[in-house]
Design a protein around this nucleic acid. Structure first.
Lengths: 211, 211
DNA sequence: AGATGTGAATGAGTTCACAGCT
DNA sequence: AGCTGTGAACTCATTCACATCT
């Protein structure tokens, strides 16, 4: 069970998150054990892939029986590093930024929104979820003070590039971008685009030929 | 240039969306032509893959010259069916739903939010972006009246399954789910999960081993 | 000369199918 | 008997490298 984080493919990793979610749901429904078959049926996943993915990280199952839900969930959670708290700073506290803060949980077990900044003076100073919105100009200071590790870009498209630069300059090395733009990237900063519009375009494309 | 939508892989399709976005940005900056090389440099994409992807759908480029931005953007837009308008109904008009409505554009060229429903009586009747929030109970009627093709689930986790069922019963065959749950799926309904928490978990996982 | 479009080669990811454990 | 873990087979996706066209 020794592996290097960078050798884990995002695809596999994302599936682990999905398995964990499924396990939690089954747990809440009172189940204690599950086989790859059952898990697959329930959530439209491939049993073979579930076994392959899990086996990559350890022998979590028992032959003839399946997986013990609580203990597997626990192990996946540690594997995904959800047992340590990660701190987020959200850039852009408009509709989307506020919604994301709530969605991620201001004060989640694994994720903690430690700061929210905005360039709109009308929003600066407003309280939200036990947090006071600060000025975008102070971003570097805010990051230093809070030790934020992950930056979340939730500004309009036009402002996304400067939000990115601000975060990069402030020393944030991991950024999640929700603005629908392709950013000019910098060396040494990990960027993950979550472009909801592209997902929408995908769904629309596969829509039946219409009436 | 004849192909069946279902033969296009989501990976390729998503990249087409990305190329289109990149082209629009270059266009706005005043460029008229671009080579796969330049496009790749600018947005961290592989030139070979750009050429391969584009060539799948037609001979869009000119050897020795590259691609004409405006015309390629136009062609991609048509390919992605962004020249026809798609109608959305958003289930759950809280923070996230409202933010999504704004993000997708209430009245975009390609996407049109035609209705928003919510189960909270306090929200029903409220106006937003030229739309009046309607009751979740009326979902079927709303869908019939508006002809909504795509359903967007933006309710809290607990309510997502019933939102899904409501949409499916109302006849919506394509659903984008933003709630962080694995839904029990139904035959004949295309579901795309956009789980922002999973994206966050990915970024957190690859974070350097901490200080 | 310079960039595309594309067979061929490589690599990544998934599924099969079964040996091996409980 | 039943389900995992896993080599081997296969499928899908990306990259190479170059003939081909302007």
């Amino acid at each position: 069970m020794t592996f290097d984080a960078h050798e884990v493919s995002p695809l596999t990793l994302n599936r682990l998150s999905i398995y964990l979610r499924g396990l939690r749901q089954l747990q809440q429904e009172g189940f204690e054990h599950v086989s790859s078959q059952e898990l697959g049926n329930r959530f439209r996943l491939s049993p073979a892939q579930i076994r392959r993915d899990l086996a990559t990280f350890g022998d979590f199952g028992v032959r003839g029986v399946g997986y013990e839900i609580a203990s597997l969930a626990e192990k996946l959670s540690r594997l995904l590093k959800l047992d340590v708290r990660h701190s987020l700073v959200i850039v852009g506290m408009g509709n989307l930024g506020s919604a994301l803060a709530g969605y991620f949980g201001f004060n989640d077990k694994s994720f903690h929104v430690v700061a929210g900044v905005d360039s709109d003076p009308l929003r600066v100073g407003r309280k939200q979820g036990g947090l006071t919105i600060e000025s975008f100009d102070r971003l570097a200071e805010v990051v230093r003070r809070t030790g934020a590790q992950i930056g979340v870009i939730a500004v309009p498209a036009e402002a996304a590039q400067s939000a990115y630069l601000g975060l990069a300059d402030a020393g944030v090395r991991s950024i999640l971008n929700f603005a629908p733009v392709l950013l000019r990237e910098q060396e040494g900063v990990r960027l993950k685009n979550v472009d909801m519009r592209i997902h929408l375009e995908e769904v629309a494309f596969y829509l039946p030929p219409a009436e």
